[in-house]
Every structure is written in structure tokens, then in C-alpha cells.
Design a protein around this nucleic acid. Structure first.
Lengths: 217, 217
DNA sequence: ATCCATCTGTTACTAGCGGTAACAGAAATA
DNA sequence: TATTTCTGTTACCGCTAGTAACAGATGGAT
């Protein structure tokens, strides 16, 4: 039967694809973002051309990996924003969700965001899993998602759409940059970072006083 | 005389270095961030080993290029924050300065921030000017600079230092992500982007009303 | 049974990359 | 004049992403 045949083909192909993705993930978690296609193929117990037949190129493999994690993260964030509490608590929950995610799996985060770590750590070659600025797709997607949530739920008057998108991308960028810095330096516990960021979003810059000395801001 | 000799040596070496940097900049502006060491050497009219004698490795050449631009940008931002006006106007000026800079020289900006563009645009090889996530150094530096300005000028109570650093990195991240998105999509004139971002920092999230429909935020 | 198409997998290669060793000539020093 | 030092080259290494070409297996159609 043709349909059965087709279905079997697709099924085995998909199972293969899953295996390859899992192997790739293992290698990326072990070797960092500089994992090479050769290494991934070896880990999967096959050779390069198969990898290329399944994913086209290195970027395709990356994207397949990234989509999984990004989907999971987006789901968590949506859940946090759907919690039954007031606005500030929801924002705190969303920030905390993101930060908890990158704290829990920093290797995954680094892979998604940072093509290659410190160049000094990878002297043999940074020509690894670069694939053209990964972070942009992930960050842009998060920004767009947040923008739609904002536009759906908050009344922003005329140009509200535009405003929502600016805010979405801006807030995501704030979260990302602060999280990146915090993950590197770990200057304080997570809840305090969340608090500081929420305060900033809640108009901290307006209410704070100038220092007595200094030129003021 | 020995001193003269030394001085001449240093002088010629430094002039050479400048020439090489300018050649590198030309190539980067022409070929995008994927410029190769070979191409840069060719543009400078010499061969690779000379490049490596001057800059050590690709990362060294990148850093030399990046420091120039970053210095200039930091100076502009400091100037904007020193203007004699109220706080909101200063923040607007700083945002506008940054956005005007990336608008005026987007290639430079992309080079500083994005190791390789869309992978599909660079099929021949993305193993170009990656050098381990450029953006981090630049963004981290901007974040730290802003943090010190905030800490110097605003009274933030206990843990003010920590708060200032979180805010510094957060605001820089917001500016960067929003600017990156805006530069790609150009959905509105610059001044309106500045206005939206300032509104966000000025507590826009607090004062906005829930929409009548929808679950609210 | 046989032919044909298709899928899976391999080996062996290309072109280009970052980076370096080894050498050749010029210039200043002794 | 002999020697060091600087500038520059050619020719290479090991690595990468990506591909062409081929070798069996599998399964339906005649």
C-alpha cells in the first residue's frame, strides 16, 4: 500500500532525525558551541553526508536544535504571563522564568546565544557553531511574542501596535543583557535581580533622587 | 643615537599598524563582517604573516578595530549624558545618540555586534570574523559605563551599587535590542523610537491601562 | 524472477579558513 | 666587514563546511 509505505518512510526518517538531534545536543553540551559537524556525525555513529541530507547545512541543524529550546522557553514565558495575579507579579514571574531557565541550563543558553565563547578558550578554531549570530533569531522571536502579548492586553492608544513592539523588543533586550551579565558575574541572588529589573520597568528612573554631590542626572 | 632609532622604529611600526587597521576597516565595510585575514592582507597590499605579527590573531585585529569605534561611541554617550537639561531629556539624548550612531554607520554596527549575518547570505563560509561573540565586550562595556554614571549621579539607597549595575546593563540591553530590531525593520522614525523607549523607562508599563477585552496584564 | 527506483550509507574529495615555519633580502649596529 | 634585526615572502599544516560519486539494501511493478 502506498500510504503505508509513505508513512513508514516518514516515520523512520523522523526517528532518525530525532536521534541525530539528540546526538547533536549531547555534543554541543559536551564540546560547547564550537562543536563540528564531524564530531556530531561521529557521536551519532554515522558520517557527515547523512547529517547534511537531513538538515541541509550547519544552519539547518542549529535551527532544528534551537527551535526546540526556544519553543519550550516561549511556553514557560506564556504560562508565567497567564498566571492569575496583578501585573507586577506577572512581570516578575516572567523575568524569573527566563532567568531561572538560563541559570538552570547555562550551556544551552550559551549555545543559543553565543556562537563561540572566549576566543582564547578555543584556539584551535572558532569556526564552529557560529551560523551567523544565533541570538538574533531567538531574541527577535521573544521580542515579537512579548509584543503581541502587550498589544493584546494593554491599551496603548494610537500607535499602540508600534509602541507594543518597541516595548516588547526593548524589555526582552533588557532581560537578556542583564541576564547575561548576571550569569557571568553572579553578583546577587536571582530574586534580587528580578526585583531590580522590575523596579526599573516600574519607573525606578523617574522616582529616584539625584545624589547630593555630582552633576545630577 | 639609540633613542632616535627606537623612536623611528616605533613610529614606522605604528604607522604601519594604522595602515593595516584602515585597510581592515575598508574590507570589513565592503565584505561585511565575514572578511577574511587573506582579504585584509591583500587589501593592505601585503601578506598574512605580517598581519599576524602586528595583531597576534584574528581576535587581536578585531579588538583593535573595535576599541576605536567603541571609544568614539562611549565619548558621544558621555557627552549626551553631560548635557545641561533635565533627566528625561538627557536619557532621550543618550538614546538618540546611540541610535543615530548605528543608523549612520550600520555596517560598522553590524561588524561590532554580529559576527556573521544571516547564514544564508554567506554560504561560502561563516567562519569569518566571528572571534567569539563580539557583541558581549561592547555591550558589557557600555553597560558598565552606564552603571557608573547612574551610581555616581542617582541616589539609590542601600545596594545602590548593585542596582545601578543591573540598571546599566538592562538599559543598554534594551537600547541594543530595540535598536537592532528597528534598524532591520525601520518601522518608524528615530525620534518616535526614542520616545517609546523613554516612555517605557519612565514607567509606561505602570500607568498604561488594561484593555477592556483580553485577560489583562 | 527480474528490472527499476529509491533510500541509506560510505569514501574521498574540494575550496577555503586561521595560523605558522622557514627562508630571503634590506637596514642599522658593532 | 660581520652580525643582528626588521620586513616581507612562499609554502605549508590541520582544520572546517560542504559535495560528488559510488555501493548495497529494500521494496514495488512487470
Amino acid at each position: 500500500m502506498e500510504t503505508t509505505h509513505r508513512q513508514d518512510r516518514l516515520s523512520t526518517a523522523e526517528r532518525r532525525r530525532r536521534e541525530l538531534l539528540e546526538a547533536a545536543e549531547r555534543v554541543v553540551l559536551r564540546d560547547g558551541p564550537g562543536a563540528s559537524m564531524n564530531a556530531i556525525a561521529a557521536e551519532a555513529g554515522i558520517t557527515k553526508p547523512i547529517l547534511y541530507r537531513h538538515f541541509g547545512d550547519k544552519g539547518g541543524l542549529y535551527r532544528a536544535l534551537a527551535v526546540r529550546h526556544t519553543d519550550a522557553l516561549v511556553d514557560s514565558l506564556r504560562a508565567a504571563l497567564d498566571a492569575p495575579s496583578d501585573r507586577r507579579e506577572r512581570v516578575e514571574a516572567a523575568l524569573d522564568t527566563y532567568l531561572a531557565a538560563i541559570e538552570a541550563r547555562p550551556q544551552v543558553y550559551r549555545f543559543l546565544m553565543h556562537p563561540a565563547e572566549d576566543p582564547a578558550e578555543d584556539p584551535a578554531g572558532d569556526r564552529g557553531f557560529d551560523v551567523g549570530q544565533h541570538s538574533a533569531p531567538l531574541l527577535r522571536r521573544l521580542g515579537e511574542e512579548l509584543a503581541t502579548v502587550i498589544a493584546e492586553r494593554i491599551e496603548l492608544g494610537p500607535e499602540g501596535e508600534e509602541r507594543a513592539r518597541v516595548w516588547g523588543h526593548g524589555i526582552v533586550g533588557m532581560m537578556h543583557a542583564a541576564g547575561d551579565w548576571w550569569l557571568r558575574e553572579r553578583p546577587c541572588p536571582r530574586e534580587r535581580l528580578v526585583e531590580h529589573l522590575t523596579d526599573l520597568l516600574w519607573g525606578g528612573l523617574v522616582t529616584a533622587e539625584d545624589r547630593a554631590d555630582g552633576p545630577g542626572l
